[in-house]
Design a protein around this nucleic acid. Structure first.
Lengths: 406, 406
DNA sequence: CTATTTTGTCCGGATACCGAATATAATACA
DNA sequence: TGTATTATATTCGGTATCCGGACAAAATAG
């Protein structure tokens, strides 16, 4: 249990001010004071400190409130984009995306590698990731020593606090300390996070969850993930473990145990033929689902059945999640959305029939294609959140292993 | 977003000290300082204030650390049991239990009413609850004006923040403002909470969750509830709604939508005959499950099938909850435990086969009969928590409608 | 060019935490 | 019995924080 001292107090208020500036663009001190309920005196003191530290900038224009405004004009404050740079990465079965972002979370450079890392030994994956990060940083015109933090979004179950990958569909070995591995390789503090958590924060900062501090995100990719935002913070399970939706048990009374991943995972939808069959090339290019959509349009029966089954299963799973968390919005993202209208409609219908009537109106479903770059950007946001040093890490304290000095 | 000022700081530390005293019995100031990471100076100041307010007491004996202890003896501090009294209640389909507790949460008086309130109009239920509370308070040798807060644990979906009963198996009308109703009747601040949340806190304070700040509780009664403790606090869904496990969808590929309540609810287990059939009297007495156990022992086939089906379903549901929340312990309580060994074993086996292997070791299952009085005691704990004024109410701020003055 | 208005900063007061010194209340021992 | 020792609790001084009110600053209105 954290003890409250003046230092913590300041940290909290400092974060509040910084976050307010981040969210509400160029903003004056008075407005910060109004929004944060802090006195103008305190806001001045804190913004002064932030200016000293170079985290924010002043701008003497852009006071839009009224052209004919009396009185001393407001000085607008905004994040200093160059206050720090971070790297975000998304590792998926058949591609990797890297992003260098500035302090605002804006993307400076991007690198997309359509490489299949599926089931490669961890050393090979680490090699590829290291190369990608170095390349992307160079593309941004920077050196690695100018990067504050790296965050890598991984599919599967990831333990944020320790940076361990507990289980992932793209890694054969279990329980990898990937954060330590990459920290040692890059000599930059590296954190590892669930890809679903990354895209959740991306939507909170830039996407369809900007207006909400409570929401749930379901990611439908090669593996199925979940992100829960609670009070503006990621809700990580006890122990900081990420969730793995694919492990949810669907169905009772069936002869065998059936998990969601067996109904709505990529392999389940595209069939057993992803390795050698007609989908092999498309999957390798990350276009498996798009191809599937065209085939569905051409009335490919097996795929229609698979997509329908998957939509039904996900709809039910989402209904159960809404029953448990009661969020006002559920954002559904991931490559499986490319399956097209049939899948989405089946999912929505299934959700509607599965959601209990008493909470029918609570949550709205929102679909978003969320390009791969946004996932990597989300990882960058995770890194930035560590920099912002949110003091009320209710769930997991700052992990970021320090790079070995020397 | 809450602004941090010295007042909040003090509130946080004050709560920390008070909670430490509550948890660790008679305890000296030095030990509080060690446990809370606060300086002895601060602890002295805060305990002085608590003593002034009459919330704690000193005791000059019981320093057990060493019989031959040098130096000034420690003065032990403990909660003042008489600092406040609260009422806790559990309302169930076929009985009500009331409890008056002191400031420590210890039960002063109990009243159990084996009355079936199922489907009665809300006015009738309110009458019965009011009478029960008044009676129980009198039994404790107190007057209603000596009661600080009342908390009523209700089955079903309850909105803690507003005290509204959204849907409950024992109420026919939807969306009842029961907190307002009882506050007006009793002229005592009354809060309404999910019964599952109440028993969760009871286990955290006195039962099988004393040692953990993160855990999950599943209640199997007439309706199926869930309580999630996260960081020592109840995790209430966005909007402060309680969860309703019975609404979980089990099964896909079945011809119809099947919810958990249809597999493991009381009616589902005992069959359609609870109203007039062989169970009528037993259910009325709250012994339906116990009777079922004896019948199962006598190899009643229908019941064996029902109990097995229920156990399987609950096991799967618990596995899914563990997948989502990752708690170190799951406490399972409720009248359905009386079904006996067959049910428990089926449940455990089902859970074990349903839990993903990657997190198999994370959670332990614990069964607890949890007598009805403990549920009411839990409701009293909810009330006490409000009194302790936990300042970091992450999920729902203090609701307690003030009684109409006059 | 002055009055007005709004914004931002400085000053004094209150509060809280903490470390060090001091007071307190017991035992150990000559 | 009286003094030294020891561990606990309180007091004192220092520092950091927030806040309200007075003051300085920078624009427009007339």
């Amino acid at each position: 249990m954290k003890t409250a001292d003046p230092e913590l107090m300041r940290a909290i208020n400092r974060f509040t001010v910084l976050d307010t500036i981040r969210r509400h663009g160029p903003i004056s001190r008075v407005e910060i004071s109004e929004r944060s309920q802090l006195s103008t005196t305190t806001v001045s003191a804190i913004t002064g400190s932030l200016l000293d530290d170079g985290l924010i900038l002043t701008r003497h224009e852009g006071d839009i409130r009224n052209a004919a405004a009396r009185g001393r004009p407001r000085v607008m404050l905004e994040l200093n984009p160059d206050a720090a740079r971070v790297v975000g990465a998304k590792i998926a079965a058949n591609h990797m995306v890297f992003v260098v972002s500035n302090f605002c979370g804006e993307v400076i450079s991007t690198l997309s590698l359509p490489i299949r890392v599926n089931r490669q030994p961890i050393g090979v994956i680490a090699d590829l990731v290291e190369d990608g990060i170095r390349r992307c940083v160079v593309d941004a015109g920077l050196g690695l020593q100018e990067i504050s933090t790296v965050c890598i979004g991984f599919p599967g179950v990831v333990e944020h606090r320790t940076g361990r990958v507990r289980s992932s569909p793209i890694v054969s070995e279990p329980d990898i300390d990937f954060a330590r591995e990459m920290t040692d390789r890059l000599n930059v503090a590296t954190i590892v996070e669930s890809d679903a958590h990354a895209i959740t924060l991306a939507h909170h900062w830039f996407g369809k969850g900007r207006d909400l501090d409570d929401m749930v995100l379901v990611s439908l990719e090669h593996s199925l993930g979940l992100g829960v935002l609670h009070g503006g913070q990621l809700f990580r399970g006890a122990g900081g473990l990420s969730h793995n939706l694919g492990d949810l048990m669907m169905g009772i009374g069936l002869p065998e145990t059936v998990r969601l991943s067996a109904l709505a995972g990529e392999a389940a939808i595209l069939g057993e033929q992803t390795q050698q069959g007609r989908f092999a090339d498309a999957v390798r290019l990350g276009r498996g689902m798009a191809l599937a959509e065209t085939l569905i349009a051409a009335e490919d029966n097996a795929l229609i059945v698979a997509a329908t089954r998957a939509g039904e299963a996900v709809g039910i799973a989402v209904a159960n999640i809404v029953t448990l968390f009661g969020p006002p919005r559920v954002i559904i993202v991931g490559s499986s959305l490319s399956l097209g209208e049939l899948f989405l409609k089946t999912l929505s219908d299934s959700y509607r029939s599965a959601i209990p009537s008493s909470i029918r109106e609570i949550a709205e479903l929102v679909f978003d294609p969320s390009p791969d770059e946004m996932w990597a950007q989300g990882a960058a946001v995770v890194a930035l959140c560590e920099l912002y040093e949110s003091p009320w890490g209710t769930t997991g304290p700052a992990p970021a292993p320090q790079p070995a000095s020397g």
